[in-house]
Design a protein around this nucleic acid. Structure first.
Lengths: 142, 142
DNA sequence: CTGACTGCAAACGTTTTGCACGGTA
DNA sequence: TACCGTGCAAAACGTTTGCAGTCAG
């Protein structure tokens, strides 16, 4: 993805800070403010928290980023794409994307009466234990 | 619901503050910290924010309350019940519960492989515009 | 070259903590 | 009565803001 043009198309200047921020989020998939700050500390030690906050807010307003609100944890941010499912591991905190199956979408649409509630976006977050953590948990007993 | 016994069964003392807190959340359906503080200011002016925070945390740990993390807004808290859908109005901020239809649950279960991710709870949040706000928006044009 | 953006530091709001007092069991 | 829980004030934390200097277009 060309982050520079993505920013310019939103009438924002393509600064190194912004491109770096988008690179990190896109690479990680889902990043919290702290995640971003920790990573940038290495490659760009001068980048300030204030700049991260300002840009996250700006990119949310422009619809380039989307906030993933997570129960019991800090929010994470992702590049905005079509609605999808989040598998959130309660052990390691990882977030995995899962394509939103048409059948699920349909069954929700049929169930929610469009006259009484007009849906603009669906956030489906499934909390549980991911494969990796589940295997590690099992190992303890051996 | 008998909040006093609910608390006692969790080995917590049934103080007036805790019972009041549960009453408010149960009555409103979904309350933020501020919501609770504002309401209690009238009936119980001495109740402190610190007490609200301490108890929310405690009741979450005990599994009596559940956090509803909302994108772009402060979290709300609800009495823990079986998984259900939240219809979140982006205009007025109201949250409405909707029973989680078996068909939706099934289509998710079939879609997510239990071997690779073990689901413990589903948070389905649908963001949009509620009936009331939608009607009011239409009225502007007359 | 100019307006937009960054980075610092200070301000602000929210949440947590420690401790003396008060209330429940 | 014993101990858990409350309320106050202070501390800690996360986020926002103002401003001078810097950079992208």
């Amino acid at each position: 993805m060309d982050y520079s043009n993505l920013l310019k198309s939103a009438k924002l200047k393509a600064t190194i800070q912004r491109v770096t921020l988008l690179e990190i989020i896109d690479h990680d998939g889902h990043s919290s403010i702290d995640d971003i700050y920790t990573v940038t500390k290495e490659s760009m030690p001068t980048l300030s928290l204030a700049t991260i906050y300002k840009n996250i807010l700006l990119l949310l307003e422009k619809g380039i980023l989307e906030e993933v609100a997570i129960s019991g944890k800090k929010s994470k941010y992702e590049i905005k794409k079509s609605d999808h499912i989040h598998l959130i591991c309660q052990t390691c905190g990882s977030v995995e994307d899962k394509h939103l199956d048409k059948k699920i979408e349909e069954s929700i649409d049929i169930y929610i009466d469009e006259d009484s509630f007009h849906i603009s976006k669906s956030h489906i977050n499934l909390y549980g234990i991911c494969k990796k953590c589940n295997e590690q948990e099992t190992l303890i007993y051996f």
